[in-house]
């Protein structure tokens, strides 16, 4: 078993757990549940990008993409949360709880 196979198996396992988290994103009862699910998927994708970079033999390029993705994931959580709060006060009532 070469290292290539190990990395490929790890990437497949990561994809399966991404699918599990996706269930929460699709079916989550509140908007905030979906945000948590997207956050988890973002953290998994950061690792997955670097694994893909190794498998394609071009890791130095994919590391840059992974850094950008990690930062984007953080900003997404903060930004969507702020937007959600502002929308709630703008309409003066609860959307879904």
């Amino acid at each position: 078993m070469t290292m290539n196979t190990v990395f490929l198996l790890a990437a497949i396992g990561l994809l399966l757990s991404t699918a599990l988290a996706l269930i929460r994103v699709v079916g989550g009862p509140t908007v905030l549940d979906r945000i948590v699910g997207v956050n988890v998927i973002g953290a998994q994708t950061t690792v997955l990008l670097i694994l893909i970079g190794y498998l394609f033999g071009n890791i130095s390029m994919f590391v840059d993409i992974a850094i950008a993705y990690a930062m984007l994931n953080f900003i997404l959580a903060i930004g969507v949360t702020k937007f959600f709060l502002r929308r709630k006060t703008a309409r003066g009532g609860r959307e879904e709880t």
Binding site: V6, L16, T18, A21, I23, R24
Partner: peptide
């Protein structure tokens, strides 16, 4: 690597 993947899976099952 597989320990990391295992904890990712635990996190995904946990939020479910």
């Amino acid at each position: 690597l597989f320990l990391g993947i295992f904890f990712f899976a635990i996190g995904a099952i946990g939020i479910l």
